[in-house]
Amino acid sequence: MSANLTRWLERSLHNCHATQSRTALRLFSGQQQQQQQQQQEVEEDEEFRVLNLRAVKKQVAARREIKRDPVPPPRSNRMAVDQDWTAAWPGPRSFHPASVPLPLRQGYTERGAAAPSKFANAELMKIPNFLHLTPPAIRQQCEAIKQFCTPWPKGLETEEKCKHHFPVEVVTTDFCHSLPTIRNPEARRVTVSLKLSELKFDAHAKDKFLRLVGERYNQETDVLTIVADRCPMRKQNYDYALYLLTACYHESFITEPWEETKSEADMEVYHFERNKAKLSAEAILNWNEAAGETKVAPSQGYAKSVEQLINEGENEYNIAKYKKEVLKMLNIPVAN
């Protein structure tokens, strides 16, 4: 009996399954559309499934993530396009990408790639920028300085007038750098320059003065330059330079007794009177004259031409003049 019961039960179960499966089939066909859509969604983000035959390995303990503060967006994003740039960038400073609201790019790339942007671009930092000297900034600063300006003194309108009234030029240098000390050894140097034509000399004094100052005098520009840097302070150096100038000037007017012994080799310029040229010219002109007669002196023009030839150096003009004078003096008729 029981066996029959179980058999029936089994059969009924079978039937039950069959009906279920049938319904399921029917269901499937009916829900096909829905399922298709679902399936499509699944497929959207479905990767290839991995056939994992072995048991899944033990999950690796996740590493502790280092927490980093999120990088804030660059400051330039918040800048208004009509801001006061001189306030945003008041002084000289090397380039900073977040503070400059310009989509700059710099760098050479191969064909087909964009140039590196301004972020983390060291090249942009190497360039000395003028962001603090934009035209509005310059205008602003000029306006600010204006109140401290005084009118230009009358009578000094041109460079020549300045030079005329203030012939001595003093040059000093101030150094500005970021160091613990504010002093620079070069700041004590004082350069005093002066046109020599501003000073009044006689022939002897000028010669002596030039010998005293030596190479401080530039013959081409006629400028005397005295550089003083032997004292530690600028003031001292300035005083010393002016003292030197004054002392040399006054010393040059003193004639020492030993100066009389100056020989021809010491002469700074060639003098016809003191040289052999005069003797030989005289000898030629007074050839066959008796001793007592008045001597004919060589002409002034000849003397001048010889001096010019030697003092100014030789050139075609000087030598032609010399030739002319010699021919005149020696009474040789000139070819035409």
Partner: peptide
């Protein structure tokens, strides 16, 4: 450096010859 008589003769030579007639 130069072909000019004063340069080539030097000081002594010039004094020796002076006054001479240079012919270019």
């Amino acid at each position: 450096e130069s072909y000019m008589p004063r340069y080539l003769l030097g000081k002594d030579g010039f004094e020796h010859l002076d006054p001479f007639v240079p012919v270019h």
